[in-house]
Amino acid sequence: MQLSIPLARALTLGLLACAAAPALAALPQPVRAMIDAAIATGDETKVRTVLELARATNPSDAAEVNAIEAEYDIILARIAEAEAAAEQEAIRTSGLLENWSGKGELGAFQSTGNADNVGITAGLGLVREGINWRHKLSGRADYQESEGVVTREQYLAAYEPNYKLSDRLYAYGLAQYERDRFQGFSARYSASGGLGYDVLTGESMTLSVKAGPAWRRTELVGGASSSSFAGLAAADFDWKLAETISLTQDASALVQSGSSTFISDTGLVAKLSGKVSVRLSYTLEHDTAPPQGAVKTDTLSRVTLIYDF
């Protein structure tokens, strides 16, 4: 735990007051000065190390060192409570455009010679964490030309609000828009709501799942349209393999009468520096009954740069 300088000073003043107590008078002044200097740095690891050394080198004064550590723990707890209360108050009073974090992705290619190809892939993901609510916004665009002819044009935008029912359980809503003329539809709208659960919440591995009823309307390129009720299930898995390398796996299934859709997106992310990373990904989308002329399975490999903000 690394404390700010003002908080470190507050700890030092509080513990210096303890030094004046008769019970702590036996502790040698140089040892006490060493402890105070460690506390002033605001580095909890350093303070624990110095206290342990003080106990080892002054066994007859162990009671005094223990008393200092007990007071240190009390003040740390009070500071943590104050910081948590201040953070919650800041969230409550924040404006609509505040407290957003996210990442942007961009990848592009161009080739000339026997064939002229140009393509671009871009994505944006935003998250706003509140006390009870979490809001997610996402978008993606893929565009490709080959010899001047458009061979891919795919767009997606989604909004997902979550209401936290407990530390891990939440209720979700989802509104999504898709456009992919090469898959046979000019627009596809989806809406869903249900429950989600954070199965894993560790620092190196997280897993969240959700499921609920859904409704989808598809507008085909030819002009026909259809609407139907469906069921949605999805999983979001992230695994930090090393300090700078992570594996991501997102999967979803929207099952309905007619054409059901199954999507898998697997990615490998490597941090380059600071907030910049590179991502290699492979996306597979399978429609069980696509419009006439469209293939059932569509795949896309991407190489993108990611900027976290």
Rank of each mutant, 00 (worst) to 15 (best):
Glu87Met: 07
Asp73Met: 08
Asp238Ser: 13
Ala211Asn: 03
Tyr282Phe: 14
Ala158Pro: 02
Ala40Met: 13
Ser225Cys: 03
Pro291Tyr: 08
Ala33Val: 12
Gly194Val: 05
Arg140Phe: 08
Gly119Asn: 05
Glu87Trp: 04
Glu219Met: 09
Val65Ala: 01
Gln154Val: 04
Gly202His: 11
Ala251Lys: 00
Val199Thr: 06
Tyr163Thr: 02
Lys46Gln: 14
Pro161Tyr: 02
Gly184Val: 09
Glu105Asp: 13
Pro28Leu: 03
Phe262Thr: 10
Leu7Glu: 14
Arg55Val: 07
Ala20Asn: 10
Ala187Leu: 09
Glu160Pro: 00
Val269Cys: 01
Arg302Asn: 13
Leu106Met: 11
Leu124Phe: 12
Ala62Asn: 07
Tyr307Thr: 10
Ala37Tyr: 08
Lys240Gln: 15
Glu285Asp: 06
Tyr307Gly: 10
Leu300Gly: 00
Ala8Asp: 05
Ile39Met: 13
Ile75Met: 13
Gly231Met: 07
Thr57Ser: 11
Phe182Glu: 06
Ile39Cys: 11
Ala158Tyr: 02
Ala86Val: 04
Asp298Ile: 09
Glu87Gln: 13
Lys136Val: 12
Val276Tyr: 10
Gly231Cys: 06
Arg55Gln: 12
Arg55Lys: 15
Ala62Thr: 15
Ser186Tyr: 06
Ile74Asp: 08
Leu174Lys: 10
Thr93Pro: 00
Ala175Asp: 02
Phe237Gly: 00
Thr49Leu: 13
Glu64Pro: 00
Trp239Cys: 08
Tyr163Leu: 07
Lys164Trp: 07
Gln256Val: 09
Trp215Tyr: 15
Asp167Gly: 06
Lys240Met: 09
Thr304Ile: 07
Ile245Lys: 01
Ala115His: 10
